[in-house]
Amino acid sequence: MAVFPRPAHPRAVIADVRRLWSTSTRRYKLVFGAAAIGVTSLLITIFILESRWGVLPEGPQVVYVSDWPVTRTDAEIKAQQRIDATEKRKLADERRRQWQKVDRNLDRLGF
């Protein structure tokens, strides 16, 4: 019992495509079919190219860290945490303000 169908010969495939092209009264199907094949080919090509070269720059990756002295007191730690929290809150407020501006523009356009 055959599980897979027998493969078609290239001449048979070409003959079927020619017959479909010449007898089809609805050419928009062929146009959209060609567009679908083109978009799919483009996406596959992009994935292949991206997998070969990647998106990260080559070379060593630099990571910056803070180095603290061992003699740092709990009060200094808490003071630095307050400064960091204030800075983080300012950044979050700025980001929220930017998104609110985008939301107002979308509301104005009816979205």
Results as ranks from 00 to 15, higher is better:
2 A>F: 04
3 V>A: 15
4 F>I: 08
5 P>W: 00
9 H>T: 06
11 R>A: 04
14 I>Y: 01
14 I>H: 01
15 A>N: 08
16 D>N: 03
17 V>E: 03
19 R>V: 01
23 T>S: 06
24 S>V: 05
26 R>E: 09
26 R>F: 09
26 R>M: 09
28 Y>Q: 14
30 L>A: 05
30 L>D: 01
30 L>T: 00
31 V>C: 11
32 F>H: 13
33 G>V: 00
33 G>A: 04
33 G>L: 01
34 A>T: 03
34 A>R: 02
34 A>K: 02
34 A>S: 07
35 A>C: 13
38 G>M: 01
38 G>L: 05
39 V>Y: 12
41 S>C: 05
42 L>N: 01
43 L>P: 00
43 L>M: 09
43 L>A: 11
45 T>C: 06
47 F>G: 05
48 I>S: 04
49 L>Q: 06
50 E>K: 12
51 S>F: 10
52 R>C: 12
52 R>H: 10
55 V>R: 07
55 V>A: 11
55 V>E: 08
56 L>S: 11
56 L>T: 06
59 G>F: 04
59 G>A: 05
60 P>M: 13
60 P>F: 12
60 P>S: 14
61 Q>N: 07
61 Q>T: 05
61 Q>I: 06
62 V>G: 11
63 V>C: 07
64 Y>M: 15
66 S>L: 12
66 S>N: 12
66 S>I: 09
66 S>Y: 09
70 V>M: 12
72 R>S: 11
73 T>V: 06
75 A>W: 04
76 E>L: 04
77 I>L: 01
77 I>V: 03
78 K>A: 15
79 A>H: 05
81 Q>D: 14
82 R>V: 13
83 I>E: 11
85 A>N: 07
86 T>F: 14
86 T>L: 15
86 T>S: 15
87 E>D: 13
87 E>L: 12
87 E>G: 11
88 K>L: 14
89 R>M: 15
91 L>T: 02
92 A>P: 00
92 A>I: 05
92 A>K: 04
93 D>H: 11
94 E>W: 02
95 R>Q: 03
96 R>P: 10
98 Q>H: 09
99 W>V: 07
101 K>Y: 03
102 V>S: 14
104 R>E: 08
104 R>F: 10
105 N>G: 05
107 D>I: 06
108 R>L: 13
108 R>W: 13
109 L>N: 08
111 F>V: 10
